[in-house]
């Protein structure tokens, strides 16, 4: 199981937990597993099959936007960090 770090805005889905465990060998599978246990979380991360433009997901130190997107590989020992992108105009 990978460890997933949950940002403040999504902790309503995890009962306040800052980190949770999730199963999967890609980011997409991790998100599906998260959503199975914490309903509604996938809609906050993915829009039209793509990572939401103001959400960052990192596998260990890599921003998946630059490293395979939702297909980026995740290992059992990986830490997946979800962060709001912090952006604006």
């Amino acid at each position: 199981m990978a460890t997933v770090s949950i940002p403040t805005i999504l902790r309503t889905h995890t009962g306040g937990a800052k980190t949770v465990e999730a199963k999967g060998s890609t980011v997409a599978e991790i998100i599906a597993d998260l959503d199975a246990n914490h309903s509604g979380i996938a809609d906050r991360l993915v829009k039209d099959g793509k990572l939401h433009r103001f959400v960052n997901i990192y596998v260990d130190d890599e921003d998946v936007r630059f490293a395979g997107g939702l297909d980026a590989p995740v290992k059992e020992t990986s830490t997946v960090t979800i962060l709001p992108a912090v952006a604006g105009g």
Partner: peptide
């Protein structure tokens, strides 16, 4: 503006 993603992590 958008935070540099590596720096932000």
């Amino acid at each position: 503006f958008i935070f540099d993603s590596k720096e932000w992590l």
